[in-house]
Amino acid sequence: MDPKTHVHTHINGEPVEFLSEAYRSLLEILRDELMLTGTKEGCTTGDCGACSVTLDGRLVCSCLVLAVEAEGRRVGTVEGIARGETLHPVQQKLLEHAALQCGVCTPGIVVAATSLLERNPDPTEREVRYWLAGNLCRCTGYDKIIRAVLDAASELRGASPNVLE
């Protein structure tokens, strides 16, 4: 048995502990040990974005993060985006725009797009396209995804009292 490290972290706001060998990725631990399989594996080389999560609020590929690096940090996954029964506007708009076909890239898109809108509530089409360039989708040609994210941004701005000030 290879030596393991006891890691204390927060995932989607909840304290979580796990044991991991130093070489295992955060993606592997999320999926294979914590059963958080919403985060998908498409390449394990950081090229497809299906494993997107946030680490201390920053968008990263969990395949390129060692699980032991999560010690003392906050991890956000797709499972933490909806609030109970209520979908995040990005999720809702992806559905309304039919912006998914097979849906396997969708969790990564959801995490990446919500991360974008937290930083930039009013992105241009170009900004959305470049922000999502690390999230490969082979089904949609991106058209409906981009529209959905722009629509979600618009709805979030409309719902925000800051816009009125």
Partner: peptide, 10 residues
């Protein structure tokens, strides 16, 4: 599929 609940092959 937007919440990550859908189960794919892996």
């Amino acid at each position: 599929k937007v919440t990550g609940r859908a189960n794919y092959g892996a």
